[in-house]
Design a protein around this nucleic acid. Structure first.
Length: 808
DNA sequence: GGCTCCCGGGG
DNA sequence: GTGTACGGGAGCC
C-alpha cells in the first residue's frame, strides 16, 4: 500500500481507456508546477435509470433485478438495482459496455415502465456527474502508481473541483507542407517537406532541405527526421491545446501514413501512445493528455461567418483581418522544393509559418468562446470544438436535466428518426425575391426571433397543450391545429432560454461600457457568444429528427408565431414606403434605401413591436443579385450574392461549382458573378461567356482548364457503376499506373460516338486540346455553372451555344 | 427515378 | 462502442 498524497491540478483531458489491468477513467492534467499527471479514477460505476409500473413495490423489483444474472458473450452479466424513489430505480453494471445490454434486458421486464440515460458515453457520464471542469483547479487525494508516458500516475477515489475559473490554455498551432506529384498530395507517393509551429512568443519551421534561412527554420536530414522532430517539438513545448486547420482530415492522417512508412510511432500523446485517428465517417484525430483541435469544425459548424467557403485564407481574412502568404502558390510547392532557389524556399518556409500563425490567431480568437461553452457543457475541448448546433443544445439540456434531477430522454432509434423525417410542417414566412439585380440594399433582422418567442410564450415539450390551460392564448395554424402553453408552470426549454437571454442581455449591457482593450472585454464577448449560440439552437433542436427532446408541435407553434411577427413588420415597412424585395424567417432585404432612412424605420418599428422583440440593421450593401430559389418540397435554398460596401462579395447558395469541376467552370462562375455585381451590367457577363465559348470552340483554352479531378474512394473492383472517374482510373491501370483507392484521377472528356461520358474520358496526360468535347464543356461545365444567373435576366442559355445572345 | 458516388478542408 | 455524419448534385443504370 503506497502512501496517500494530496494533489492540486488542472485537468486537460478525460477519457476512458485500457490500462494495465483492465479499463479505467483517466483524468490527464498538469500541476501548478507544470508537471504532467494522470489520475486513474476508481469507484465510479456505470449505471442507468428505470421507472417501474405504477403500484409495484420498488424494493422488490430492485431485489429481483439485482438477483438476475444472464449469459452474454460467454460471460455472466450482473446488475445491481437501487431504489431512488417510489417509482424509480438506479441500475448499476460492472462494465460500461454492459449498459446497453442490461438496458435492453430491463426494458422488457413486465415490472418496468421506461428506461433512461443509458446512451451516454461512460467518460461523459463521469465528467458530468463528477463536475470535472477542464482547465479549472481541482484537488484529489491519491496514491502514486508509477509513470505512463510523460505523466506521473496516481490512483484516486474522488476528485474535487476547487474553483470554476478556467485558465487560458497554452496553445500551439501547427501546419505541414507536402509535395504533390499529382493534382493532390498522396500519402503513398508524396513526402512531408516542412512543418511549422506557432505559439505565444514561439515560432519554428522544420525542413529537410538546407537553404539560407531565417533563425526560426530548423534543418533536419530527411522526412523521417522531420517527423521525429515534429513529435519532439510538440512534447517539448507541452501545449494544452494543439491546433490545426483541416488537421483532422489532412495533416494528421498524412503524418500518420508517412510515419508508418518509416515504422515511426506518431506518439505525441502525453501517455506515450500514438494519435488516434478515427477513419470511420469523417476523420477526427484524438490526442491523449492534450487537446487536438481542428478549428475548421468550429468555424464551419458554429461561428457564423460571411464567406460561404471555409478555406483558411477566407476565414482568416474575415476573423483576424489578414490572409495567407501570397508569395507561394500551393500548386507550385513541389516545383519550389525541387528548384533549390533559396529565395523561393524562404518564401515557402514563411508561407508554412504564416499558416500556423493564422491558425494560432484564429484559435486565440475562438478559444475563449469554446472555454465558455466548456464551462456550460462540461466535456473536453475536443468534443466542444467538433460540436454542431444540435449537439450544443443537447449537451446544454443534458447538463441542466442532471442539475434539476430530471431524467434526460434517450436518442431516438433509427426507425423513429425515419418516421419523424416523414413529418413536415410549415416553416418560416418567406417573401420570394423577384430574381434580379438590386442596388443600395439594407438587411434588417430580428434579434433572436425564435429564442424570444420560446421565452415569451413559455414554449417547451411539457408545457404545450397542457391540461390546465386549455383554451388560453391559443396559437392557431392554417391547418386548424391549435396550440397553447401552460401559464401556471415554467417550461424546461423556456425557462432555460429566458435565463440565457437574460444573462446575455446583462453581459451586453456591461460590454457597451467596457473598453475593448480591457482584459474583461474578450471574456464577456466570449460569454455572450456562447449564450447566443446555445439560445439560437434551441428551436432547431425541437424540430430535429434526431433530438432527444423532439416536439414537432413546439416547432410548429414557434414558426407560426415567427410568421406572424415578420408579416407585421413587412406591413409596417410598406406603410413607411419601403419595398421588401426578399424576406426569410427573421430577416428582410430592402432596396433603394440609405442608412438614414433605415435608421428612421428601425426607430418606428421598434416602438411598435411587443417587448422582447427587436429589429436590427444587419448590414448595408451596394448591390445584390438574387436568383430563383431552388425549389423542392423541403428546404428551399436561398441563392444570392451581395457586394458589400468594402467591395467583398458574399455568396449564399451559389456554390454549385466545387473541386470536382473543371477550372473552366470555376472561372466562368466567379467572373460572371463579379461582373454582374460590380457593373450591374449583365451584357458584359454575357459577352464574357460568349467569348469564353468561342475560345473553347477555337481550341484557345489550355488543356489544364479542362481537367476534372476526382478521388477514388474505394478499390476499382468495388464500384457498382462505371462513372467517368472510374473509367479514367481503369485507363490508368491499363497503362500500368498504380491508381487505386485514395488516388486522384485527372481526366478530360473527349469527343466520341457514345452517349455515355464514361466512354469518352481520357487521362489528362494523354489528351490534347484538339480532342476535347467542346459541347460537353460548354453545356455541362460553363453553362451549368452560370445559367441560373443568366436566367434571372431573361437569357436562355441555349442562345449562347449558337453564338447568338438574345433574350429568351 | 432510384441508386451510387463525390465534395467539403488540406498541398 | 452506453455505436454508426450530412446534404446536395451529377451521372449511371
Amino acid at each position: 500500500m503506497g502512501s496517500k498524497v494530496k494533489i492540486s491540478f488542472y485537468p486537460i483531458d478525460v477519457d476512458f481507456s485500457e490500462v494495465e489491468n483492465g479499463t479505467a477513467l483517466r483524468v490527464f492534467g498538469f500541476t501548478p508546477e507544470g508537471k504532467k499527471i494522470v489520475l486513474l479514477a476508481k469507484g465510479f460505476k456505470p449505471y442507468f435509470y428505470a421507472t417501474i409500473r405504477e403500484g409495484l413495490p420498488a424494493e422488490q423489483v430492485a431485489a429481483k433485478i439485482s438477483a438476475q444474472e444472464f449469459e452474454y458473450k460467454g460471460r455472466k452479466l450482473k446488475m445491481r438495482a437501487e431504489k431512488i424513489s417510489g417509482m424509480e430505480l438506479k441500475i448499476f453494471t460492472e462494465f460500461p459496455t454492459d449498459v446497453p445490454v442490461a438496458q435492453d434486458f430491463i426494458k422488457r421486464l413486465d415490472e418496468i415502465d421506461k428506461t433512461y440515460e443509458f446512451d451516454i458515453k461512460f467518460f461523459k457520464r463521469f465528467m458530468l456527474d463528477s463536475g470535472i471542469l477542464p482547465f479549472a483547479l481541482h484537488e484529489a487525494t491519491c496514491e502514486p502508481a508509477g509513470k505512463l508516458g510523460d505523466c506521473e500516475v496516481f490512483e484516486t477515489e474522488t476528485i474535487k473541483t476547487i474553483s470554476t475559473a478556467v485558465l487560458a490554455p497554452k496553445i500551439l498551432a501547427f501546419d505541414i507542407e507536402t509535395l504533390s506529384a499529382g493534382q493532390q498530395p498522396n500519402t503513398k507517393t508524396d513526402s512531408i517537406i516542412m512543418a511549422s509551429f506557432y505559439g505565444e512568443n514561439y515560432k519554428k519551421v522544420i525542413a529537410w532541405k538546407r537553404f539560407n534561412a531565417p533563425d526560426y527554420v530548423q534543418f533536419v536530414d530527411g522526412e523521417r527526421e522531420l517527423i521525429e522532430e515534429f513529435i519532439k517539438t510538440v512534447r517539448a513545448f507541452s501545449p494544452h491545446v494543439l491546433v490545426g486547420y483541416g488537421s483532422d482530415h489532412f495533416d494528421f492522417p498524412f503524418l500518420r501514413e508517412r510515419a508508418a512508412k518509416y515504422n515511426l510511432r506518431l506518439n505525441i500523446n502525453y501517455d506515450g501512445s500514438e494519435v488516434f485517428i478515427n477513419t470511420k465517417g469523417r476523420h477526427a484525430a484524438k490526442t491523449t493528455g492534450l487537446q487536438h483541435l481542428d478549428i475548421s469544425h468550429f468555424i464551419r459548424n458554429i461561428v457564423s461567418i460571411e464567406t460561404s467557403r471555409f478555406k483558411l485564407d477566407a476565414v482568416a481574412k474575415e476573423l483576424i483581418g489578414k490572409g495567407k502568404s501570397k508569395t507561394v502558390d500551393p500548386a507550385l510547392i513541389s516545383e519550389i522544393w525541387s528548384s533549390n532557389d533559396a529565395g523561393q524556399l524562404q518564401n515557402l518556409a514563411e508561407y508554412n509559418l504564416i499558416d500556423s500563425q493564422l491558425t494560432f490567431e484564429i484559435a486565440k480568437k475562438i478559444l475563449p468562446t469554446q472555454m465558455q461553452l466548456l464551462k456550460m457543457l462540461g466535456l473536453n475541448l475536443y468534443e466542444i470544438n467538433r460540436m454542431t448546433y444540435g449537439q450544443l443544445v443537447e449537451w446544454f439540456l443534458i447538463n441542466n436535466a442532471i442539475k434539476s434531477k430530471t431524467r434526460f430522454p434517450p436518442k431516438p432509434r433509427a426507425f423513429q428518426v425515419f418516421e419523424r423525417r416523414k413529418q413536415t410542417y410549415t416553416g418560416a414566412f418567406v417573401v420570394e425575391p423577384t430574381p434580379g439585380f438590386y442596388k443600395n440594399l439594407c438587411v434588417f433582422d430580428f434579434r433572436s426571433l425564435y429564442p424570444s418567442i420560446i421565452a415569451s410564450h413559455n414554449i417547451s415539450p411539457e408545457t404545450i397543450n397542457c391540461k390546465c390551460c386549455r383554451g388560453l392564448k391559443i396559437v392557431k395554424l392554417e391547418t386548424g391545429e391549435e396550440f397553447w402553453f401552460c401559464t401556471n408552470k415554467k417550461g424546461f426549454f423556456s425557462e432555460l432560454i429566458s435565463d440565457l437571454i437574460e444573462r446575455r442581455k446583462r453581459i451586453n449591457e456591461i460590454l457597451i461600457t467596457t473598453n475593448p482593450q480591457d482584459s474583461a472585454f474578450a471574456e464577456l464577448q466570449a460569454r455572450q457568444h456562447a449564450l447566443k449560440y446555445i439560445a439560437n439552437s434551441m428551436y432547431g433542436y425541437l424540430g430535429f429528427a434526431g433530438s432527444r427532446w423532439y416536439s414537432i408541435e413546439c416547432a410548429k407553434a414557434i414558426t407560426a408565431l415567427g410568421r406572424q411577427y415578420i408579416q407585421d413588420v413587412i406591413k409596417e415597412a410598406n406603410k413607411f414606403g419601403l419595398r421588401v424585395i426578399y424576406g426569410d424567417t427573421d430577416s428582410l432585404f430592402i432596396d433603394n434605401v440609405n442608412k438614414e432612412q433605415a435608421k428612421q424605420f428601425l426607430q418606428i418599428i421598434n416602438t411598435v413591436l411587443p417587448k422582447p422583440m427587436e429589429l436590427e440593421l444587419k448590414g448595408a450593401y451596394s448591390s445584390g443579385l438574387f436568383l430563383e430559389r431552388k425549389t423542392g418540397e423541403k428546404g428551399a435554398k436561398k441563392r444570392y450574392a451581395l457586394l458589400s460596401e468594402s467591395g467583398s462579395i458574399i455568396m449564399k447558395g451559389l456554390e454549385a461549382v466545387r473541386g470536382d469541376w473543371s477550372k473552366l467552370a470555376k472561372k466562368a462562375q466567379k467572373k460572371v458573378i463579379e461582373l454582374v455585381l460590380k457593373t450591374g451590367n449583365v451584357e458584359k457577363s454575357a459577352e464574357f461567356i460568349q467569348n469564353l465559348i468561342k475560345d473553347v470552340n477555337n481550341k484557345k483554352i489550355p488543356l489544364d482548364d479542362f481537367i476534372i479531378n476526382v478521388k477514388l474512394t474505394k478499390d476499382l473492383r468495388d464500384y457498382a457503376n462505371i462513372s467517368p472517374h472510374v473509367a479514367a482510373a481503369t485507363l490508368a491501370n491499363q497503362k500500368g499506373m498504380p491508381i487505386g483507392r485514395g488516388s486522384v484521377v485527372s481526366y478530360v472528356v473527349t469527343k466520341g460516338e457514345s452517349d455515355k461520358i464514361s466512354d469518352r474520358v481520357k487521362l489528362a496526360e494523354d489528351a490534347s486540346v484538339n480532342e476535347i468535347d467542346s459541347d460537353y464543356y460548354i453545356e455541362s461545365q460553363i453553362l451549368r455553372a452560370v445559367f441560373k444567373i443568366f436566367e434571372v435576366f431573361g437569357y436562355a442559355v441555349e442562345n449562347f451555344k449558337t453564338g447568338q445572345m438574345r433574350l429568351a
